[in-house]
Design a binder for these strands. Structure first.
Lengths: 346, 346
DNA sequence: CATGAATTCTAATTCGTATTAGCAATTGAC
DNA sequence: GTCAATTGCTAATACGAATTAGAATTCATG
């Protein structure tokens, strides 16, 4: 900047005033033009580090997560945060806490936050790959922060989570609406909010339909495709099998498709299936397309960024609706044979 | 730091010397202890921005990509870069160029790089979601840079790409080794290095096996699962169908599985299938598990980071080997009925 | 022509740290 | 008791920009 100033025969202050378009600076148009031309000619490029130091603001947001950058699951979160941040002219500093290695997770998380604070981020988004309850790093209180998909034990920080309970209830209702009465919930043996809320949504939907007794929840040994397959195989091999299955997630739903094919059942003719999460690599690729619940990760992350950029600090607890994505895996029970499978599945 | 200095009755310089453990500084042990205690008690946290300004080094690496952060495909690249960077005590500034919107891609890329330069990153990794040839932003020359999965038109920058040609040749060889002679390559109508190198690998493997005449490459209308399905359906419905299919990627291979099921063919009994990319959400989840090629994205990204951290600037053109991941989708042709499908597929 | 007002610019300071030259006090040697 | 060497610390400066108080010049007015 000094070089530009010298070359344009003005002071460094003038260059700063011109390039930042400070109004009320009273620089004559001719000087402004001259400075701009010289700066362009010399290829002047502002030093954001110096700028940050002076302004006490880095135009950078920290993003701490567990496995998000690392897995193909919740990349909508990073994507939303990244896009939103860029649209505000800021940048994203990502810190993934995954391999705790020798240090316990809690310590690793705290360290990640502290490192971001040292870099003077203007705010921090603390995200989880799935909705869970956490004892959140205390250093988060030193800067505006938002919890993404994380239910904190105390509610002193703003947070945004999906309404998985209502979503689960709604997809189940969708099954009930077309006439299913024998619905099984294929769940997974974890006790995160994600899991329990989906279970509760299922149970409540069934109960309200007067089907409390037939609301069967079955626990697989995990939440992946092969685990869904194995569990579904048992369920579907039994003499009387359900006419619909509500899966904890799309991956397990795929396992259900595989198990159904194995025992000669056709989806959706003999078995309706719904998933959860709308995994882009799975749900739309299955044949027939899987009806599922969309977790609005992208929008949630955008909201989190907006919250920080707007300078808010109030501890709102946002709960967002999850839209149902209807595809072709649900039809009324007992329609077997009435539809020619190959044709109606596009 | 001044506050700490004042509280410990020393100068700011002393605090700096102590906290940075400068050797040869000649600070007495007692003073060191005192300073450290005071700093800890006051919760002193260094300002990385000021540090960067003074040291002319940000300990930050820029990561520019097209769709990586955004899609579940090549997340191994971000993951590797992130982990490597963290292990060196640095941070990653991610800039995804995707929605060019009103500005052309080239301009958007150049802008992304320039923004990173303004933030004084110590180096830039310029990555692509898939291996392709690009006219790379010229601003990359102003800072140490590595091209990841990008073949630049000129070779002035270091780059690292997978050896897709050899990998393709090798998987095809694997099919030939077990006895297949009627092999079809299911490709996609793009002309990126990824696509052409896999095609060439296929053709060369076939030619070297004396099967040049039966080396059939079929182009789908795209590279996704449904597109693979549609194309495979045609291929497999023909009176005489191949005994093995080499797919451009895992997603298309899944489409082949679906098409096979549709026409009553069993994988691998009636049809062997190999994919490419080892997509974690697909290849291991298919039944039978898909034999495919692993693109070593994680390791490539780590290499790129190491290159930058080591301060290298030589324009190496690294080409890395892609391991084959053997699962259960390949067996010799003509074994139909000899294996009981349900049992051997785990 | 003097005075005040407006215009146009600059000098000086600041942000928080790293680093070097050098000062003061202590110790050692004779 | 003197000088040199050593120990232990500090003052001062720089990094690159933003910002403010005010200087220098021009203009308008009576």
């Amino acid at each position: 900047m000094s070089d530009v100033a010298h070359e344009a025969n003005v002071s460094q202050a003038t260059v700063s005033l011109v390039l930042n378009d400070v109004d009320g600076s009273g620089i004559s148009q001719s000087t402004k033009d001259r400075v701009r031309v010289v700066a362009a000619r010399m290829g002047y490029r502002p030093n954001a580090v110096a700028r940050s130091l002076k302004l006490q603001r880095s135009d950078t947001i920290g993003f701490v997560s567990d496995q998000i950058t690392t897995t193909p699951y919740a990349f909508g979160l990073v994507q939303g945060a990244h896009d939103a941040v860029r649209s505000f002219g800021r940048h994203l500093l990502i810190s993934n806490v995954e391999h705790p290695g020798d240090v316990p997770r809690k310590v690793a998380e705290e360290m990640a936050v502290v490192e971001l604070l040292e870099r003077r981020v203007d705010g921090i988004i603390f995200a989880s790959r799935f909705h869970r309850t956490l004892d959140v790093p205390s250093a988060l209180n030193e800067v505006p922060s938002v919890l993404l998909d994380v239910a904190a034990v105390d509610h002193s920080l703003a947070s945004i989570v999906p309404d998985e309970y209502t979503a689960a209830k709604n997809v189940c209702q969708l099954l009930l609406d077309v006439g299913h009465t024998q619905v099984v919930h294929l769940s997974t043996p974890h006790e995160t909010p994600s899991v329990t809320m989906r279970r509760r949504g299922f149970v409540d939907a069934m109960t309200e339909a007067g089907l409390a007794d037939s609301a069967v929840t079955i626990m697989g040994s995990g939440d992946s495709t092969p685990e869904g397959y194995i569990t579904a195989l048992e369920v579907l091999s039994a003499p009387s099998h359900p006419t619909a299955i509500f899966c904890h997630n799309d991956e397990m739903a795929w396992g259900v498709y595989q198990a159904a094919a194995e025992v000669g059942l056709v989806v959706p003719d003999d078995l309706s299936v719904v998933g959860f999460k709308n995994v882009s690599l799975v749900a739309p690729m299955l044949r027939p397309g899987l009806t599922t619940v969309e977790l609005p990760h992208y929008g949630m992350a955008r909201w989190a960024v907006s919250y920080l950029v707007e300078g808010r600090t109030d501890p709102v607890q946002e709960v967002v609706e999850c839209p149902i994505v209807v595809r072709d895996s649900v039809i009324p029970p007992g329609l077997t044979g009435q539809l020619t499978r190959n044709q109606e599945n596009r």
